[in-house]
Amino acid sequence: MSRPDPRRDRVHDDARDLFERASERLDQGAAFRLRRARHEAQQPRPRRLPAFVPAGAFAAAVLALGLAWWLPPAGAPALPDTRVAGTDPVPTTELDALLAEEDPEVYLWLADAPVATAMGPRP
């Protein structure tokens, strides 16, 4: 086992002593700054909102505006649904074209024709 180096201990002992003296004999300016820093560090700080909160609020506002623009107003009456289940509605233009091709004379004759009933033909 080697003997401790006495020179090493003296150098480091001197360093410790110097550090102790320097810490005890702090100048007034530094001592004041440290006291103030300690008190300020313990003061309650205003709670800061996380960064995502304003971004989330902005996104929600944009979404609300989009929905308000896209959805119909609440007071407007809803149109009745005239479609028959399972069938596609016939476009108006196509219906007009079909009626134009029919002969109106057929419908006039049909209105004047006798109708058969249990009591006999009705004029």
């Binding site: 550090f19 530094a30 820093a37 300690r38 313990q42």
Partner: peptide, 19 residues
Amino acid sequence: DFDAFLASVERRAFRMAEL
């Protein structure tokens, strides 16, 4: 006490940082 703890280390902390 938290304040007492900070007071007990502040000078040595300053000297260490200064070195």
